[in-house]
Write a protein that binds this DNA or RNA. Structure first.
Lengths: 148, 148
DNA sequence: CCGTTCCTTTTGTTTTAACAAAAATTTATC
DNA sequence: GATAAATTTTTGTTAAAACAAAAGGAACGG
């Protein structure tokens, strides 16, 4: 991926700026590829993330705020993400008996099943994106990214 | 930035997945910091990008499609981005005399002036984001990012 | 020329995200 | 125990992005 070619500039830009534009371009690429992989399932990347988090709970229900703190979106939108998954039958939602302000969200059997299918295509998409990296390069990259 | 801490997982995830989540988190950070820096000017990051591209034209007008291919958004939204900048008096828009399908967009004096002020705060924000990197590390990072 | 096709931009619609505030319940204080 | 304050979630609204299609003009082939 050649930054200068993509944004069509001949001008030399500061290294800091180039780095951040670079990250943005890569992010777009990730978003597009993974989003496309999920398209047949008719779920957004965010919905996929919710399902993954719920699976990580291993049967333990998650509150909305738990989901939310593990995601990038705003609380109010997390509610509506869950609404969509509920409509598809991929999650259950109940008021928490010990604290009726809270809700408990669980992934359903149907949700787990479709999630494992999604995993496959997402893993492929991810692999495509990093195909030009060796394992060592990826490790090196992660070390550098940790500095942000 | 500790990925595992942010997404609150103890589970070891595949290196490829970790890398891509990492990039997404960094992108969010960039978007948030730079967006905040621009907030006092009441322009979005995308509007700022349009202005920067127009300045890069050095007086030569840009067509919408030129703007668009240097950005990540869809054509239809580029029209509306320019609408907003027009309303603020930061750009001029005229139909191209040699081909009346096209439009010619130019940055105005007023646009150039605010852009140079924006540059300052954006450069600061960018510098903040990469503050933990040495120049060499940034160069190394860019080499790795080129592999995407 | 006239119709067809292609190119560039705009308009319309739907979905998603951001921002603000309200509703419902629990906890704390007096 | 009533009132206020804090916590958790939902609802409402506005702004931005994604998707689809139409409008307007240019180019081309007969």
């Amino acid at each position: 991926m050649n930054v200068e070619e993509i944004i069509k500039t001949a001008k030399k830009m500061p290294l800091e700026t180039r780095t951040l534009i670079h990250i943005t371009l890569i992010h777009n690429k990730i978003y597009e590829h993974v989003g496309n992989a999920l398209k047949p399932f008719e779920v957004s990347l965010q919905q996929f993330n919710v399902l993954r988090i719920l699976r990580g709970q291993k049967g333990k229900p998650a509150n909305l705020s738990t989901l939310n703190e593990r995601m990038v979106t705003k609380m109010s939108n997390t509610t509506r993400l869950v609404d969509k998954l509920l409509a598809k039958g991929y999650v259950d939602r109940n008021v928490c008996p010990s604290n009726r302000r809270k809700v408990e969200i669980l992934i359903t059997k149907s949700g787990s099943e479709v999630l494992s299918k999604m995993d496959k295509v997402v893993a492929e998409a991810e692999h495509d994106i990093v195909q030009h990296f060796t394992k060592q390069e990826l490790e090196q990259l992660n070390l550098l990214l940790d500095k942000f």
